[in-house]
Design a protein around this nucleic acid. Structure first.
Lengths: 220, 220
DNA sequence: CTAGACCAAATAATCGATTTTTTATCTAAA
DNA sequence: TTTAGATAAAAAATCGATTATTTGGTCTAG
């Protein structure tokens, strides 16, 4: 029996879910907008049933707001909520990082170095935004992966998606961005040195700076 | 213009979602079981579309597992996962309680006293299990409500549902239960006294004891 | 004018039937 | 016996059409 059949079948429903999730995180919809379901049907070329299933999932995940009898809306962006999301990221990712450093094994160290390296190369290729986003997400995921709590990782991922709705809308700030990029490398160093305190402090700072960038999404 | 129209319309989809969520938390389905969609259709007397939408939401929420092309399964119960859930409850509810005590106002104090009182009366009426569960959930929600973070509250609620899958399956332990009931009152006292440290410690102990009860779901 | 009542158009929700994929069963060859 | 392949039955996913509800405009009474 082969071991390769885990190539999970993609259904229309799962495809449109992934696609919409990305588009929502990337700000391809206006915050506060009411989704015209039949328009989405056209735009993405999917049927009503898979589309509605995806919208239901996205609402349960927090990327949409569902109101009975009046469809789905894109959540508004609010400074209060960004504060909340950033706060929670600090608390949860800090906790996760601490545990990851205490529990991560040698294999983790390797993967972390690899992820950081891939990200660093993407830092220097400003044309491949999408690729950078993928690698950035993956780096942060790798960093906390061995924290030992599936639920913690789940919450963190959810918060990342929420946070990115703001960040990706904000204007780029090359100077801050440069600092943030450098911090990824420093995080790896502290993690490998098993410096829990230092790593937590740096992560706090990293999220704080990202938060300040994301605040730019409210610029007028 | 009236202010009462928030009586949100209940759709077939939202009804079956609520119903299934309760039934899942209450252990009316066997852990690990594969859901036969057409059987559910009969059992609950709903159509396929609203049912599938509800299942999709429940999967996104974590009360079901969705596998492309092969439907939905009830997650297995695993000691590891219960450990994780309890750990996270300690961390997140502790954090929320701390903040709630720092931020809760006089109105909160009143509601907290009321919630505790209602719960206490239900403690003594062993016939109304369902009612007690409602009030118990509500008490814990009230306790942390003014923590200031919508996301934290959301995660806590999700963890409660997960935790209760185990707890409600475990055999009752009247002695521990008595202690747990008493702790609710003590939590209120400490909260009103704004004793952050004390309240956190008690909450830790409360969750720990509940966890030990919930472990009974693995009894053979 | 303005609040409400009414109606038509638009949209959400749901149904019943069809298509696609998986799972179970059977058979023949190794 | 196994194992691979074929195939029938079951189940999941999707479609197209129908029903129910909301929304937006128009009219009328006060």
């Amino acid at each position: 029996m082969g071991i390769f059949e885990r190539k999970e079948g993609v259904t229309a429903s799962s495809w449109i879910y992934d696609t919409l999730r990305q588009d929502l995180v990337n700000g391809r919809f206006t915050a506060g907008e009411k989704l015209a379901i039949s328009a989405l049907k056209e735009r993405y070329g999917v049927g009503l049933s898979p589309l509605r299933e995806a919208l239901n999932r996205l609402a349960a995940y927090g990327l949409l707001i569902q109101e009975n009898q009046r469809g789905f809306r894109v959540p508004r962006l609010a400074r209060d909520e960004l504060d909340d999301i950033a706060d929670m990221r600090r608390a949860l990712e800090g906790m996760a990082l601490e545990r990851a450093i205490q529990r991560g094994d040698a294999e983790w160290e390797s993967e972390l170095l690899a992820a950081a390296h891939r990200l660093k190369r993407a830092d220097e290729a400003p044309e491949m935004e999408e690729e950078w986003e993928r690698l950035h997400m993956r780096f942060h995921r790798t960093l906390v992966a061995p924290c030992g709590s599936a639920w913690l990782l789940r919450f963190i991922e959810q918060l990342h998606d929420q946070f990115d709705r703001y960040r990706r809308l904000a204007p780029g700030e090359p100077e801050v961005r440069h600092v943030l990029d450098a911090q990824h490398g420093e995080l790896v160093e502290l993690a490998l040195a098993r410096d829990v305190k230092g790593a937590r402090a740096l992560m706090d700072d990293h999220i704080q700076r990202s938060y300040e960038v994301a605040l730019g999404s409210f610029a007028r």
